[in-house]
Amino acid sequence: MMSYELIGISVLWLFLYGYLIVASIDFGAGFFAFYARLTKQDHLINRLISRYLSPVWEITNVFFVFFYIGIVGFFPDTAYYYGSALLVPGSIAVILLAIRGSFYAFENYGSKNNIVYLFLYGASGLLIPASLSVALTLSEGGFIVKEGSTVSLDYWTLFTNPLSWSIVGLAIVSVLFISSSFLAFYASRAEDHSALKLVRNYALFWSTPTIIIALTAFIYLGQHNARHFQNMMDLWWLLALSVAFFMIAMWLLYNGRRYGLAFICIMLQFFCAFFAYGIGQYPYILDPYITIQNSVTSPAMGFALVVVFIGGMCMLIPSLILVFKLFLFDADYVKGKK
């Protein structure tokens, strides 16, 4: 049987991937809504965006909380190291999330057409992935300093390192790429051709920087953490699959058909890359301080968490299917008839 820590980290990685997808759609949509307002194209896509996002914005947030509580629960040492080091970037991420979540609600349910609210909502959407990606950078090691029992973050190393900037850049462009390709799929379902034209262009535009920055980040990772890089090279087939899915998605988007399949390919593209990255990092959660074996919670708690997780999934999966049925795959709702 798989050990608790391995189940734990696999489940959490899967949830982080889930958050990556749903949050990217959400964050990117906020930015596009703001950008479309600035370029006076908002009449084309705003209804589309709010129709999808309104029922699900709170769910997106829970994905994040779930991952975060889960990792602290399964691996309490992460709270100590990351908690101590991430006070400033973590607090800034929290503030941005708070501004974004609440101003989305204020703008959407309260005072519509408030440009300040929309700006806060749109701009924070790009800054949040940037601030959250710092945690991924830290896990590569070399940025967290431990002196005695004091753990702190070496800001100078962090800010002068090309790896951290390439990860930030990758986070931002991936958000825009994932989001625009999802919106293209949603617009095609809604048979909203003017919106489709606009968001398809966004998707095609953001695909190139995504793949370039992904390669750049990979090269910088090789310079920073040879072990991680080598492990990922051993998983070359996953990375190759990722590139292949990207090519298929681009071909579909370029030809302007099967947008649903194109979006699934993009999801698989990120899935392969994300898991190659995660498996390559094994067994470290924070190089070199935390490995998944030496930081795992007690067996009794590990067992309880796995049991609760299975029980929770039995509630969660039907509920999520219900949401999808009502708001994503109900053609009448998507077209705005309900």
Partner: peptide, 26 residues
């Protein structure tokens, strides 16, 4: 964290269910 992880984890599930159904309700 060794002792309180369980209720914290359960809370996120409860929160999940609430979020999903509130979205549907509205």
């Amino acid at each position: 964290g060794q002792a309180i992880a369980l209720p914290l984890f359960m809370e996120t599930f409860a929160f999940f269910v609430e979020a999903i159904f509130l979205g549907i309700y509205l």
